[in-house]
Write a protein that binds this DNA or RNA. Sequence first.
DNA 1: AGCACGCCGACT
DNA 2: GTCGGCGTGCTC
Length: 781
Amino acid sequence: MKIAKVIVDLPLMQTDKPFSYAISKEFQSLIELGMRVHVPFGTGNRLVQGIIVGIEEEKDAENSSVNLKDIAELLDVEPVLTEEQLWLADEMRHSVFSYKISCLKAMLPNLLNSNYDKLLKSADGAVSKWSQLTEEEKISSAKAVRAGQLSVEYLAKSKENRRTEKYLSIPDLEKLAEFEIEKRAKKRLELKYFLLRMTEEKIALKSLNFSSQIIKFFIEHDLVKIEEVEISRTKDKFEAIENDSAKVLNSEQESAYEKIIASSDKPFLLEGITGSGKTEVYLQTIDHFLQMGKTAIMLVPEISLTPQITNRFIARFGDKVAIMHSGLSDGEKYDEWRKIKSGKAQVVVGARSAIFTPVENLGIIIIDEEHETSYKQDSSPRYHARDIALLRAKWHGATLVLGSATPSLESRARAMRGVYELLLLTKRANEAAILPEIKIIDMRSEISDQSANFSQSLLAKIKEKIDKDEQVILMLNRRGYSSFVMCRECGFVVDCPNCDISLTLHMDTRTLNCHYCGHVQGIPQTCPNCQSRKIRYYGSGTQKVEEELREIMPEARVLRMDVDTTRTKNAHEKILEKFGNHEADILLGTQMIAKGLDFPNVTLVGVINADTGLNLPDFRASERSFELLMQVAGRAGRADKKGEVLIQTFNPHHYAIEMTKAQDYEKFYEMEMRFRRELSYPPYYFTVQVLVSHQDEEVAIQKSYEISQILKQNLTEKAKILGPTARPIARTHNLYHYQILVKYRFEEELESALNQVLELTQLRDNKNLRILIDSEPQNFV
DNA sequence: AGCACGCCGACT
DNA sequence: GTCGGCGTGCTC
C-alpha cells in the first residue's frame, strides 16, 4: 500500500504540514506528485482541495493505512505542479514565512482552485445548495442537520474551464451528395450545397448561418459530425501583429550578447542607459536559446507590461510567446498557463508571478527593470521574483540576466563584488538620438501667479513644443502624495474613521476614499469641526492639473492616464494608441507613464512635482526618486529630435535631483552607498521587518516589546534591532501597527527565531494578534 | 476554516 | 431539570 502526503488548502499554522492519506486501488497507478486531489478533512469529512507533495511506500504497521482516510477524488490526469515547483515551494519557505499551501498556490492559475459547497438532502429527497440559501435558511438548515432531518454532502469543485468551439465536418462526402432532400426544404438544400462546395476539412459552427434546427437534421442523419475543439482565449491578439526580425547590434550590444550566451556561471547585470537597446539584446539572446531548443522567461514590471513591449516579443517570436499579466481574466490566464505547460509556448513574457510558470528546459531568465519594487510581492507569500529566478536558474543551469538603466543598489553592489557580471551599454542604440538635456526649475523662486502647479518656464516650453507640432509627456509624482480636503478656517483635515490617514479626494465619483481600508464617504459641505463653509480641496491630482492645463492652454489636446482613466480593460492600450497617433499633444499621467514608452515625437518631458517622494520615511526614498526621474527623462527624444526635460522641484539641491540633472548613475551610486554604509542599510546589511498589529494599542506595544526581546535573545550582538516603533500610518482597518526592523549580516538563528515569533500567535491569549514577517521589505510607508 | 466537545445561564 | 451560548482544540 502507498500513502500520499497531502498539503491541504487551509492557510493556517495548525494545518501547515503534510497529512497522510491512503491511496485506494483505483488511484494507485494514476496518482503522481504535484496533482490536485480532494480529501475528506476533519470530523465532518468535508472535502478540501489538497496537493500531493509526497508518495511513500507504507513502512510499519503502526501507521497502517487502516487509520488513514482515502483520497476522495483525483482532480488531474497529469500533475499541475512540476517537481521543480514543489522544490521551489520548499526553498521559498526559508525566506517568505508563509504557509506552504500559499507558496504552492502562487504557482497555479486561479482557475485551478476549488469552489467549496455543501448539498443538503432531506428524507423526502429534496436537495438544496448551501451557497444559495439566505442567512436565515442557513441557520434553520444547520439546526435541521443537528436534529438529523437533513443530511450533508460536501461538494468541492474545481473551477477549471476551457473555452471550446464546435466544428462541423463531413464524415462521408458521397453519402451527403446522394442524400435526397425534398425540394420544398429550401434551407436544408441550401446547407447541403454549401457543404458540398466547402473546401476546408471542417468549419466553425458559429460561422455558418443556419439555424440549429437545420444543423440538427444533418446530425441526426449522420451527414455531418460535430466536434468540440478547444480554442485559446488570447489567440486573436497574436494574429494582428506583423512579424519582425532581428536588428543589427552595435558593438556594445554585440559584446553583451556574446558574453550572455557564452556562460551561465553567474548572473549578469546589464546596465544600459535608456534607449541603449537592452530589449534588442534580450530578444536576440532569447532567440539564441530557442535555437538551442531551450525556453525563456522574460519578466517586466506590471506597469510597463504595455502592448508596446509585448508586441515586440510577439512580432519576433509569434505564437511561441505566452503573455501573463494581471489584466487577463482568470480564463485567459489559464489558457496561457496551459500553453506553457503543454510546451506550446517557449517564451513567457510576464510580470512577477510569471517567474513561477512551469516551463521545462529553461535556458534563460531575464528580469528587465530589475530595480522595480513590484518584483517583490507585498502580500503573502512575500517573495522576490529575483530570488525565485536565482533558484530556477540553479535548478536548470540557466542564465540569469538582470537589466536596468538604474540598477538597485543591492544588485549594483553585487556586481562590484563580482557576484554578478556587469555589462555596460553606454550609447544609445539609435546613434542619431542624443541624450536629452535636463533642466531643474526651482519652484521656490518660480511660482507662477497664473497657476499653482506650473512654472512660467514649463508652460512656455510646452507651448513652444505644441506649436512645433511635437508632443509632451507630463508626469505628476503620486508617491507619498494625495489630494485631500481641508478646512481653511481651522485646518481640519477629513480623516478615515478606521485608519490614521487623511481621505483621498476622488473627483470622478465625488467621494472621499481611504486607500487603506476602502472606506468611502461624501465630501462634506461644511467643516465637521468648526462648521465653516471654507472647505477647500488641496493637492493636485491629475484631474486638477488637467483642468488647470485646459484653462491656461485651451488649444492643447490633453490625454490623462492614471488609475481612474485606466480602470477598464484595455483602457491603457487605447490611451497610448491615441497618443501614438498624435490625437493628443500632451500625455499627462502618474508614474505609469515613466516606463517603457517609446514615442519618437515626444521632445519634452515635464515633471510637475519631483520632490513629493523625496522626504518619505523610507531609506530608499532617494533611490526611488532618482530612478523615477531618470526613467521619465528617458521618454524624451527617443528618435532624431533632441529631447528636453524640465523638472520642477522645491529641493533643487537634493543629490537625487542634482544627479538626475547630471544623468550620472555612477555618482549617485557612490553617494547613496556612502549613506547606506553610514546607517547600516542594504546593501551593507540585510533587513527583516516584523509587523505587529492589534486592535488595542497597548497590547500591540506590549507584544512588540516581547517580540523584540525574543529576537535579542536569539540573535548575536552584531544584529541591529530597531524599534518597536509605530508604523508611519499607525492605524488602519481599526488595527494599531507597530514595527521592528532587524538589520543583520550573518545570523544563523534568524530563521528559527522568526519562526518562534510566529508561534506566538498560536497562544490562547494572542488570538487577535497579527504578526507579519517581511524579509527585505521594500515599502516602509 | 469548520466542526465537536464541553462547561455555565435562562427557559419549557 | 434541559436547551443552547461560544471558548478551546483538532483535523491524516
